[in-house]
């Protein structure tokens, strides 16, 4: 992922978002970060609808998705994204409080790339997010509507 890649964080809890953002930055990720407060906002952005910010065709995206959100929950967002022939190329990282094995299995079946449980222990949390950062530095993020780009390196 190169520096132009945008990290989308769907997170209804402002505190969580702040913690995630800080951890990512501390892990050295300095990409642009966009926050959506619920599933609807996220979908509007991705499917280029509504009045808010909209996805741009030539940009790379990575989605961090919480599950328990008002209106449309993360699971539904994941399903819609993965059912769309274009959007399904976006890597999705589930970052949520739910550690129910069945939920985890469902997310994997729907096609999420990584599933991370938000640990309460701060160190663990930071570690988990750091790993996401690391992940971002090694995964090949395809450009939507275009040819895949070469492996991006963060830093």
């Amino acid at each position: 992922m190169n520096k132009e890649g945008v990290i989308l964080i769907a997170e209804d809890d402002e505190g969580h978002f702040e913690l995630i953002k800080r951890s990512l930055q501390r892990a050295g990720v300095c990409n642009e970060i966009l926050r959506f407060a619920d599933g609807q906002e996220t979908l509007d952005f991705l499917f280029v609808r509504g009045d808010g910010a909209k996805r741009e065709h030539d940009k790379e995206y990575l989605l961090l998705l919480d599950i328990r959100m008002p209106n449309i929950d993360g699971m539904e967002v994941l399903e819609k994204v993965k059912n769309d022939p274009e959007l399904k190329k976006i890597p999705v990282v589930m970052l949520t409080t739910t550690d129910d094995p069945r939920t985890i299995e469902r997310c994997h079946n729907l096609g999420c790339s990584v599933y991370i449980v938000k640990p309460v222990e701060y160190q663990d949390f930071a570690e988990a997010v750091r790993r996401v950062g690391l992940l971002l530095s090694v995964v090949e993020v395809p450009q939507i509507d275009g040819m895949p780009k070469s492996k991006g390196v963060v830093k």
């Binding site: 969580h16 913690l19 328990r68």
Partner: peptide
């Protein structure tokens, strides 16, 4: 139990901050 964990993540997280 899930919803109660969400605020805890904040308490822990910002406590550490």
């Amino acid at each position: 139990s899930h919803d109660l964990r969400a605020p805890l993540v904040n308490i822990q997280g910002f406590g550490n901050e």
